[in-house]
């Protein structure tokens, strides 16, 4: 890598906010920054990251189920020369929320997006390969990482102590 210019977290945060004013930022300290991105702007922000930071590595991308049809998507990028950790947070809502695919910019995110789709039911638009990644075919559409998916807890009854209270069940039918 010939480019040795380093990027500071707060400088980069300001740069993104200047170009896309809908984005807000929270510093996480220690050259880490979190950007809260609206769902329709995610492609713009990821493109900007790709253009501005030379050696950026798509580290991870995953969903979080906040219950009551609220979801969060978190993208994590890491740049080793500037030692900068970027965390993008996208809030989503609805029974089957949608997000634009970013895997043509970072191919490494392709499998993470497939996983989010099968585990949380977050539809990834324009994904080149929307098959199941980890799950067997019979769990297609069951979205097991959602909180409302009930797992088999019968083994706990075998211990002989009183079983712990069941999780509070949010809206929606149990699978």
């Amino acid at each position: 890598m010939s480019d040795s210019s380093t990027t500071n977290a707060s400088t980069f945060g300001r740069l993104v906010i200047n170009k896309i004013p809908e984005v807000t930022s929270n510093p996480l300290g220690d050259n880490r920054i979190e950007l809260v991105v609206p769902a329709n702007k995610i492609r713009d922000v990821v493109t900007l990251i790709d253009e501005e930071i030379q050696d950026v590595l798509p580290e991870s991308m995953f969903g979080v189920d906040l219950e009551n049809d609220q979801y969060e998507l978190i993208y994590i990028f890491w740049s080793y020369t500037s030692r900068l950790l970027l965390q993008l947070r996208v809030s989503l809502e609805g029974e089957k929320p949608e997000i634009e695919s970013t895997c043509d910019i970072f191919p490494g995110l392709e499998w993470h997006e497939r996983e989010v789709r099968e585990m949380f039911g977050i539809e990834v638009k324009n994904h080149p390969d929307p098959r199941l990644l980890l799950l067997p075919d019979e769990l297609d559409g069951a979205y097991p990482m959602r909180k409302r998916f009930q797992t088999d807890r019968s083994r706990l009854n075998e211990t002989g102590i009183t079983p712990p209270k069941p999780r509070p069940e949010p809206g929606g039918d149990s699978q």
């Binding site: 580290e59 080793y80 030692r83 950790l85």
Partner: peptide
């Protein structure tokens, strides 16, 4: 290096390209 970073490769497969990318030093 460029290709490897796009895929998300890290660790020895990247260090073999000659870039000192190591979390033990960086983070």
């Amino acid at each position: 290096v460029k290709q490897g970073l796009k895929w998300g490769l890290s660790g020895p497969p990247m260090k073999a390209c000659g870039i000192p990318m190591d979390l033990r030093k960086d983070d």
